[in-house]
């Protein structure tokens, strides 16, 4: 069923597409995280702005990706922005909610103790609340990354110069060539799993205290 010789002949372009896939994902999740983090911090400190921000991010998420790519071509042409803008916008709803939930999940007594000890409000945010929000923030990054890796394949419809592994899926589909579809889909899945595992490792490194939870006191 799989034409292994075709696969062997296309290892070079496969590697290129894997890297492109990672690059498109990294830019989208990175930029999405920066925007989301700013909006989430604003929401945490000024509660009134959170409902409209969350609503807007939610509405953006409902726009069909194909429609958004098509609409953007008339604005940003075939530049990388046409691929990245939708990818970034789709990460916002997941990331903002998770970051805000992370800060909300900091125990009230910890916040009160930090205030009572004389932390400034920014000092408290960075040194006490942010570290404790890390598990939920990383949970958001995992979800956003996995969903973005899936969406990157669709950016192939904009042009052949995008799409990452989606390029193989689309051409395989047009040519009715199953091997090429597998060459696009399987590495895409493996990529998603690898990125997810990487984030789990990162979380363990960032939150050494969490590993000790529940260990009985001596």
């Amino acid at each position: 069923m799989i034409d292994w010789s075709w696969v062997a002949d296309h290892l070079g372009v496969l590697a290129f597409r894997v890297l492109q896939h990672l690059e498109l994902t990294a830019i989208a999740v990175g930029a999405g995280f920066v925007i989301s983090f700013g909006l989430a911090i604003w929401s945490v400190r000024r509660r009134a702005v959170y409902p409209p921000i969350a609503a807007l991010a939610g509405i953006l998420y409902t726009i069909p990706s194909l429609a958004m790519f098509a609409a953007l071509i008339s604005v940003t042409g075939f530049s990388v922005l046409t691929a990245e803008i939708p990818l970034i916008l789709y990460t916002l709803v997941i990331l903002i909610r998770n970051i805000v939930a992370g800060f909300d999940g900091v125990p009230a007594e910890v916040v009160e103790a930090a205030r009572g000890m004389g932390y400034t409000s920014w000092g408290r945010l960075w040194r006490v609340e942010l570290p404790l929000a890390v598990p939920l923030i990383i949970a958001g990054l995992r979800l956003a990354s996995v969903s973005t890796i899936g969406l990157v394949t669709i950016t192939g419809v904009i042009s052949d110069s995008f799409g990452g592994l989606g390029y193989f899926i689309l051409t395989g589909y047009h040519l009715q060539f199953a091997t090429e579809i597998y060459v696009g889909a399987v590495p895409s899945i493996l990529l998603a799993v690898a990125v997810d595992v990487a984030f789990v490792r990162l979380q363990a490194r960032l939150t050494p205290w969490a590993a000790t939870r529940g260990v009985a006191a001596g």
Partner: peptide
């Protein structure tokens, strides 16, 4: 206010230790 609080010890019922420290 922050200088004031740093000069006053504060202990609460739920302790509020920083779990990450």
């Amino acid at each position: 206010v922050t200088a004031l609080r740093r000069r006053i010890g504060y202990v609460i019922q739920q302790v509020g230790l920083f779990p990450h420290r």
